[in-house]
Every structure is written in structure tokens, then in C-alpha cells.
Computed example of a mutant assay.
Amino acid sequence: MGSSMNEELKASSSTWECVSLSEIKDKLAEFAEVRGWTQYHCPRNLLLALVGEVGELSEIFQWRGEVAKGLPDWSSDDKEHLEEELSDVLLYLVRLADVCGLDLGQAALAKITKNAMKYPVSAS
């Protein structure tokens, strides 16, 4: 999926708050289809690709120690690299959910509700 997919998605939306998981899902499905990649996008392959991307994301933080919120000491290049790796993780996660026939957005909202019941405010 890589940076060209990130650039295509960025070009279509001005801020991340405006992008829906459904929009990302549809763009990823189209991206894979026109390149003939759908045949390779089985759950196992997507999961392994996702794990690889999480590994690349982890490498960014591996030797930095604690990092301040907002990354004030990071260069713009470091932040861009982080943004790309986070995007890769998101893209593979959304694609995996789609290939598995799951609505990731609804599943995430349901999980937040479950967590709210499991960890009520009074227990904090």
C-alpha cells in the first residue's frame, strides 16, 4: 500500500477528522482492484502485512525512551515518517476488516461501549 496510497487519500481530504473508515475502505478496495491485488488480499496475508507494519512503527520508538505528547522535540521528517507508518497500520487494519466482512467502525464503537461498562467512571 505504501506512500502513493497515502498521497491519494491525503489529496482527497483536507483533514483527518473528515475522513470516514467507509471512505478509506472503499478507496482501498478500489486501489487493490485496479492493480489486481485483490487475489492476494486474504485475511492471513493482510494480517501478516499488518504485523510487519506494526514492527516498522515500533522501530520508530524503539530507542527514543519516553516521548512527550505532541512530539515537540521531533523533526518534521521524523513526524512524517511516523505519520506514514501509522497510516500503513491503519490501511492494513481497515482492509483486513473489509476482507473479513466486518464493519470496523461499528465494532470500534461497540468496543468503546463495552469498555465503558467494564471500566465505569466511578472505578477510575
Rank of each mutant, 00 (worst) to 15 (best):
D78T: 04
K25C: 12
A97V: 01
A107Q: 11
L50F: 05
L82D: 04
S20P: 15
Q62R: 15
S20E: 15
T15S: 06
W63M: 10
K79W: 01
D88L: 01
A97G: 08
C100Q: 05
I24E: 02
T15Y: 04
V54K: 02
G65R: 10
R95P: 06
D98F: 00
A49Y: 02
S12G: 13
S4K: 11
S13T: 02
E53R: 00
L109G: 07
S4P: 12
V67L: 04
G2M: 06
G2L: 07
Y119S: 13
T38Y: 10
S58T: 15
L82E: 01
K27N: 09
K111Y: 11
A11F: 08
N115H: 08
E85F: 10
E8W: 03
A68W: 05
N45I: 02
K79N: 07
T113E: 11
F61K: 05
V54H: 01
V121D: 14
S22C: 05
V51Y: 08
L28K: 03
S20A: 14
L48A: 04
S20Y: 15
E33C: 11
M1W: 07
L57H: 03
A32G: 05
F61E: 04
E56G: 13
A29V: 05
R35V: 02
A11S: 13
E7W: 12
Q106I: 09
Q39S: 15
A49K: 10
T113N: 07
K79V: 03
S76P: 10
K10L: 13
E30H: 09
V94P: 02
V99Y: 03
G65W: 08
L50D: 01
K10H: 13
L28W: 02
S3C: 10
D78N: 04
W37S: 12
L71D: 10
N6H: 00
W74A: 07
G52Q: 14
L28E: 01
S20D: 15
E85V: 13
C18P: 06
H41F: 15
A97N: 01
L93R: 06
L46P: 00
I112W: 01
A32M: 06
L9Q: 14
R35K: 14
C18D: 10
G101H: 00
A32W: 02
V121G: 13
K69Q: 05
Y92F: 15
G70K: 01
E8K: 09
L47Q: 09
V54A: 05
W63D: 12
G36P: 01
K27I: 07
A123N: 12
L28C: 09
K10N: 14
L46D: 00
S87G: 10
S22P: 10
T15F: 05
E85H: 09
L104N: 00
W74M: 06
E33R: 12
S14Q: 06
M5E: 04
Q39F: 14
G65H: 09
G101I: 00
I24V: 12
A116Y: 03
I60R: 07
S13M: 03
D77C: 08
A68E: 12
S3M: 11
V99I: 08
K118Q: 09
E66Y: 07
L82M: 11
I112H: 03
L21A: 11
K69T: 09
I24S: 02
E17V: 07
S3A: 11
V19S: 06
P120H: 07
E30R: 05
P43W: 05
S4N: 10
S12N: 14
G70S: 03
A123L: 10
T113H: 06
W74H: 05
Y92R: 00
A29R: 04
S76V: 04
D98G: 00
E33P: 02
E85K: 11
Q106D: 12
